[in-house]
Nucleic acid binder design. Structure first.
Lengths: 155, 155
DNA sequence: TTACATTATATGTCAATACATTTAATAGAA
DNA sequence: TTCTATTAAATGTATTGACATATAATGTAA
């Protein structure tokens, strides 16, 4: 369905405005569908994102600060997200040897198992994007990269 | 900057997975920059979105339910967002004549003035997307429409 | 008309988030 | 060394959000 129909708006200031609204709308759509899939496993999309980052480093530990740099949403509280994962036994936390301010986080066996189980769901989620060909998906990604390539800092 | 650098991940399962992560990351990036611009005016992106929907109907009223259908993020609580706008004097709420369950919401003079002031900021925000040509912006929007064109319901 | 289902909105609740502040460790300059 | 700045992570707090439920009006079938 076109964005015009989805948000019941027929006119946009210009193609850029339309693209911006469509981007926000589509990201919400995708994020909500992911949240819905993860709900039965008692994981939020953010927790899932952190868990996958941990798996990406496994068996090496990663520090909280490095997790933040890899997160899709930088604004969220990585420290508390890790807390949640610890509470569920999906990760382990140990003091970093060389820097006692820092903390090493590693995904646990249970975390790896849960992710393995969720990999099938992830396929299902990615299939939502199968309306696009591989070439189109690459083109979309390139356009998004270009969109962000402003020199501006802050706001 | 490419998404690889931004989230420090060099490999993706496939082009679709990469596009999905890029979409979520870019939407957060855009949304955060908008929040940052709006902050001095004590408006959240969601409140701003509702205010613009109200202006789109002005001078006609719009019902809360119709606001929800136009919102970029359907999950948020439209009723409380409208509350916030009323509290700030940016909108007015009157009982709907023909259906006493419903409520008519109209943007106020103050709301219109605030939006007029913000239109310049909005230009600035849209300029973030000026890295793309008009054709590219349209292409991006079309790809997003296509991405959402799955027949699936729910998750 | 009476039931009952549906619709529109509001509210209660608890978790998640944003953002500022705190605590503690490290780095570097004087 | 001492002082100060910086960095890493945790915490406090107020706001926002999701989601279930409540309230009230409307529509509809018997």
């Amino acid at each position: 369905m076109s964005i015009e129909t989805d948000i019941k708006q027929s006119k946009f200031r210009n193609p850029h405005h339309k693209a911006a609204l469509n981007l926000l709308f589509t990201a919400n759509w995708l994020s909500n569908s992911q949240a819905c899939l993860l709900k039965p496993y008692d994981l939020t999309p953010q927790q899932y994102n952190v868990l996958r980052i941990l798996r990406g480093q496994y068996p090496n530990p990663i520090r909280v600060n490095d997790i933040i740099e890899r997160m899709l949403d930088r604004m969220s509280n990585a420290s508390r997200l890790v807390d949640k994962l610890l509470l569920k036994g999906l990760a382990q936390r140990t003091e970093c040897l060389h820097d006692r301010r820092a903390v090493d986080v590693v995904i646990s066996e249970a975390g790896l198992n849960l992710l393995a189980e969720l990999d099938n769901l992830q396929d299902h989620w990615e299939n939502k994007l199968q309306q696009l060909s591989s070439e189109e998906a690459t083109l979309l990604s390139d356009l998004l990269d270009k969109l962000r390539s402003t020199s501006e800092t802050s706001c």
